[in-house]
Design a protein around this nucleic acid. Structure first.
Lengths: 347, 347
DNA sequence: CTGAAAGCGCTTACAG
DNA sequence: CTGAAAGCGCTTACAG
């Protein structure tokens, strides 16, 4: 019966500790246990019973079972955030903001999809089957939202193309684009180019159109040949730039705006490799203000988007919705700003 | 009763569609509905009943409720991955691998913590309260694991310091460190430096110790002054390098290995700014082989770690565990490789 | 093959 | 203040 090998510590009974066990241990009903465990004891449970229950909870190591609780209440205490692009460093700051806003009452869970992909209808249904207390969806596309029937509390992030009927927190990238155009106009540029992203994300369209519009309004010209596009990839952007630069140069382009800093890194790199002077010969700027932009050589001028704030505001809105409150503002728009660095400004 | 404003499409009854509703609609019991809905009908439900149920499911838009199902079964079909560092681009590739391995049977959910932080004991308990079918924990620290009592299927990723009693998939960073040392020795370096990370992650220790050991074995010297450390941050690494470089130079150091590519970017940047020739005057290399390393100027020599494979193998192991199978190999170790680029090799 | 019933663990009126 | 009981939606022996 007692084999020779070292007796190991008896594993604490694998059995899940239930409210019923706590109730028995404390000599009360499970209703009382529930009240105490959920912090609803004030004025509903006698001090002595409360103490007994707390003691029993500690002794047995009881934790309220999320599944049972969710079933009884109709919703879980989970907030699910659907995230299409986890590889973007920008996204980490958004998450940090959401976590900050949500605090510890709700459990934040991320559902990630493959880069740039949105969750399938099937995935979405499964997520809803988890009965989240709230849903946060970053950069959704319109068709995705149609599938999301009966969603309960829902806040969209970075979803500029949606109507005002669904709560959203957006970034005013158009404003940032204008700031950038103004900066280039002020520093004397007459002909500018634009290196776009090819993923068809709405924000890319907004960035481009706002920049082109503002540029023209400010009297700068965008030569026909001066529009290019690649996926969000340093190497491909470098390649594309090396292919189009001769034409741009011939057309008199002296500045280029890029849909993302990543694109801009490609240009910086290619310029360095081939001896194009930045910003002397070509001024370069991007969007996103990624961490590396502060430290590249030259530093990259970039439209800064407040990621942490985006997450925080979205979390706050969702919190209100989950509390059953009305939103005073359905649509929150956050200002962007321009970080001017060496890539557009001679030292 | 019928106000003048446009009547909108009647919202599909907000009531959740339950198995009972489907059962009634199809004229069968909920047991039959459950069998069909879960694909367990073969040989247990008559073809005609199955057809009726399927039709009812479609008509009513029934989806099995995850919460009810989880409660009845004891576990959910959710796999939770605990991720301490979502801002690392490397991590996105790991996730992709996990998703690939897991397929569509399980729902992957990420629980992220603030950069470098591990989930609190409290958070962990809440996660367990979701009754995940399996748990994946990336880069845990030992104390975290102790709290994880009765975890069910669990696979660790990148957790070199754990014993062989808990299933894990690890990266052989030590091997990569040796490859790097060999490369530097072969290219003629006699004195090398190391720029470490300060977060105290185990993998950083392994990288450093393996590199230093191999370097010495290969006859290279690591001068006392040639060890520095900063957090994982380009700007801080640049600053630190600018502070220590004079001493390193005086000591005869001609090559530096960095705990991460991010550190190395800082050195590249500072070197460019101050005119230190890379690799002529100083060869530079890092770990992680981040996307930018391929395209920096010069390209950064780096120890490549197979992130996608790491995720995939971990997912596969977890799948086996969740299926109740024994693991033939508890500990999987993945080889790293050295990507040699311009930062250590004159063109 | 089929359905009634028990049970998963909890919460919340409800009656006392 | 307290507890018995119903109910959340499902799954799974079990008896037929």
């Amino acid at each position: 019966m007692h084999p020779t090998h070292k007796p190991r510590a008896i594993p604490p009974s694998r059995r899940r500790v239930t409210a019923a066990m706590v109730a028995e241990h404390a000599g009360v009903s499970t209703a009382t246990v529930s009240l105490v465990a959920n912090g609803k004891a004030i004025g509903r449970v006698s001090a002595s019973n409360e103490a007994k229950v707390r003691e029993a909870i500690r002794e047995l190591g009881y934790v309220v079972d999320g599944i049972g609780s969710s079933l009884a209440r109709g919703v879980s205490n989970t907030v699910i955030m659907v995230a299409p692009d986890i590889s973007n460093p920008f996204f980490a700051t958004v998450i940090a903001g959401v976590r900050f806003a949500l605090g510890s009452e709700y459990q934040l869970l991320l559902s990630v999809t493959d880069a740039g992909q949105l969750p399938s209808a099937d995935d979405t249904r499964k997520l809803l089957g988890l009965r989240p207390a709230g849903l946060l969806v970053d950069a959704p596309d319109p068709s995705f939202l149609e599938e999301l029937s009966a969603p309960g509390p829902l806040v969209l992030l970075d979803a500029p193309e949606f109507g005002s009927d669904v709560p959203a927190v957006n970034l005013d990238v158009a404003q940032g684009a204008r700031l950038l155009a103004e900066h280039l106009a002020e520093t004397g540029h007459k002909k500018v180019a634009y290196l776009d992203g090819t993923t068809g994300t709405t924000t890319f369209e907004v960035r481009r159109e706002a920049f082109l519009l503002a540029s023209r309004e400010l009297g700068m010209e965008v030569p026909e040949c001066a529009l290019a596009a690649t996926t969000v990839n340093v190497a491909l952007a470098a390649e594309e730039f090396s292919a189009v630069w001769p034409r741009w140069k011939k057309a008199g382009v002296t500045a280029v705006a890029c849909a993302t800093d990543t694109h801009a890194y490609g240009i910086l790199q290619e310029a360095r490799a081939t001896g194009i002077s930045i910003p002397g010969e070509l001024a370069v700027a991007g969007f996103d203000d990624l961490p590396y932009s502060r430290t590249s050589a030259p530093g990259l001028t970039s439209v800064h988007l407040p990621g942490e704030l985006l997450g925080r505001r979205a979390g706050e809105q969702l919190l209100r919705l989950m509390a059953g409150e009305e939103l005073e503002t359905q649509q929150v728009v956050l200002q962007s700003s321009l970080m001017v660095r060496g890539s557009t400004l001679e030292a």
